Simulated scan of single mutants.
Amino acid sequence: MTYSDLQSKVQAEQLTIFGTLLGARGTILLLGPHEPGFWPVLCESPEWQDGLADPVDRWSQRVITRLADGLGARAHFPFGAEQAPFLTWAMASDRAWISPVGMLVQADAGLMVSYRGALELDWEIQTPEAPRYPCASCAKPCTTACPVGALQGKQYDVEACRSYVQSDPAQRCLTEGCLARRACPISQAYDRDAAQSAYHMREFLN
């Protein structure tokens, strides 16, 4: 099965391949949301509508486990009792790097990157040519977009970020998502629904 075949199967579930790396036995495919279709499909899912906790994780586990079963692969997740090392995998992959503000930047999602799971295959696949590090030729608007400069120091100032977001229920970081993430030119082309970003920001505050 080729990379293109695998991508077609994954995208049919409103996920997409966010990077690949070699695992112990074969190729690991890192999966993230395929926009703009991911959020509407998730919101129509039984996991979202049953009112129980962690709907995004539960949807991801159901869908990616089904994909793994169909491909004879193993599913891994960045949540749950046996969390896989997704940050390490992302940095070892061919499509993610550390951005100027310290967060991961991914070739397709920019600073809006989120990994919903991974498929570990028992065989190696030929992957597309890896893109160049995008921040090298960027004006880096992410470095000045945060209203409180929470990403300008050596470490992310979580409390400054949290206090600002909690200070006004109508400010854009809460209603549209992190302004630094949205400033990234790749993020702007990713077409992520503002409602999705707002949901994740509310989860961050809980």
Results as ranks from 00 to 15, higher is better:
residue 1 M to R: 05
residue 15 L to E: 00
residue 22 L to S: 10
residue 22 L to K: 15
residue 24 A to T: 08
residue 36 P to H: 10
residue 42 L to F: 02
residue 44 E to S: 13
residue 44 E to M: 08
residue 48 W to L: 06
residue 49 Q to Y: 01
residue 50 D to N: 12
residue 52 L to H: 05
residue 60 S to W: 14
residue 61 Q to R: 14
residue 61 Q to N: 12
residue 62 R to H: 07
residue 69 D to F: 07
residue 73 A to H: 11
residue 73 A to S: 01
residue 74 R to P: 09
residue 75 A to S: 15
residue 93 S to L: 05
residue 93 S to F: 00
residue 97 W to C: 08
residue 100 P to Y: 06
residue 102 G to V: 04
residue 106 Q to E: 05
residue 108 D to G: 13
residue 112 M to I: 11
residue 115 Y to G: 01
residue 116 R to E: 07
residue 117 G to L: 09
residue 121 L to R: 09
residue 124 E to Q: 12
residue 126 Q to Y: 11
residue 127 T to G: 00
residue 127 T to K: 12
residue 129 E to A: 08
residue 131 P to V: 15
residue 132 R to N: 08
residue 133 Y to F: 10
residue 133 Y to N: 11
residue 134 P to R: 12
residue 136 A to L: 10
residue 138 C to L: 13
residue 142 C to E: 02
residue 142 C to A: 11
residue 143 T to Y: 07
residue 146 C to P: 05
residue 149 G to Q: 08
residue 150 A to R: 00
residue 150 A to W: 03
residue 153 G to V: 09
residue 157 D to G: 07
residue 157 D to I: 07
residue 158 V to I: 08
residue 163 S to V: 03
residue 164 Y to N: 01
residue 170 A to Y: 08
residue 171 Q to T: 02
residue 172 R to A: 08
residue 172 R to L: 10
residue 174 L to Y: 00
residue 175 T to D: 02
residue 178 C to Q: 06
residue 179 L to M: 10
residue 181 R to P: 08
residue 181 R to L: 10
residue 182 R to W: 10
residue 184 C to T: 06
residue 184 C to S: 09
residue 189 A to D: 05
residue 190 Y to I: 01
residue 198 A to K: 07
residue 202 R to N: 07
